[in-house]
Design a protein around this nucleic acid. Structure first.
Length: 279
DNA sequence: AGCTACTCCTGGTAGC
DNA sequence: TGCTACCAGGAGTAGC
């Protein structure tokens, strides 16, 4: 499932294909994709708008339509579990899972494909409507050690659910939280307010290292989710240390990785590298 | 305030 | 072969 690194990869592929393009007519095959807006209102809002920029904020893809009267606002896309955004020739057949498409002025078309229908393509005048509550970017300057120390103390929550909370820190999902916790040697059920300075620092470093490494490799390795907008699969799938590796030996100490549920989510730990409560 | 359970969806897979 | 049952999960919400 796309998390911050996969979304970053998509944005990097889309940017040169979209910036400077003018949007045209849209076709929406599954209206809930628009997040409440009618297909007609969506079409009216974006038709004729010029794409000024394509950016990432947390796991959102933000297509900035600038401030022209015709297209003031942004199209914000969330891939959720299985969403994909790709630019194809305009005669590309929709296939079974296309939920929406928007014509481009270069003869191509921007397609949103999403088998499980969880993804969203939202038009908003003010992006803060969707992005305003998000916490800082884990790779950004705001994610300082002192801020993180304070945030972990203030919230008094279990570590994993807290790290998945996008209003605290924006961009981590199930995979990279498990990877970061393993790298930092921390248990997912540890209390956030009880982490000492060394562990807070190790966690912050681990989060950044895990995300940066994933961005470098472009994609999560889970093929269906890791495809770039051109449909190429992401690179190697051997990168994870714990995620999806139940029963397999920890790459650091050889102890079998254990799977359990934390807050309804699959959670993978090495019981030796991440001591704490039993899962 | 934080925690749990539930909801949205459907492709894939395990079991019979 | 063809069925059923269940799982995956980001984020929002309700209820305690």
């Amino acid at each position: 499932m796309p998390e911050l690194p996969e979304v970053e990869a998509v944005v990097r592929e889309l940017r040169p294909r979209l910036v400077g393009r003018r949007l045209g007519a849209s076709v929406v095959r599954w209206t809930p994709t628009l997040g409440g807006l009618s297909a007609r209102a969506f079409g009216r809002a974006i038709d004729g708008a010029l794409v000024q920029a394509v950016e990432r904020r947390a796991k959102w893809i933000v297509i900035d339509l600038g401030r022209e009267r015709a297209g003031a606002g942004s199209v914000c896309v969330h891939l959720r579990m299985t969403g994909r955004l790709q630019v194809d020739p305009k005669d590309e057949p929709p296939g079974r899972w296309e939920r929406a498409r928007v014509a481009l002025d270069d003869g191509r078309t921007l397609r949103f494909i999403d088998p499980r229908k969880f993804g969203r393509v939202c038009f908003v005048r003010d992006r803060a409507t969707l992005l305003g509550e998000l916490g800082p970017e884990p790779l950004g300057e705001e994610f300082t050690l002192s801020w993180f120390t304070h945030a972990l103390r203030a919230h008094r929550r279990l570590l994993k659910p807290l790290l998945l909370d996008q209003t605290l820190l924006a961009g981590l999902g199930n995979i990279y939280v498990d990877e970061a916790l393993h790298r930092a040697g921390l248990h997912p059920l540890a209390r956030s307010e009880r982490l000492g300075p060394a562990r807070v620092s190790a966690l912050r470093d681990a989060i950044r290292a895990v995300l940066a490494a994933a961005i470098e490799r472009d994609g999560s390795g889970v093929e269906i989710f890791a495809r770039t907008p051109e449909g190429r699969p992401g690179s190697d799938g051997e990168r994870f240390h714990v995620y999806g590796r139940a029963g397999q030996p920890c790459r650091r100490c050889g102890t079998p990785i254990r799977r359990s549920l934390v807050g309804q989510r699959s959670t993978f730990i090495c019981p030796r590298c991440q001591p704490g409560k039993r899962l």
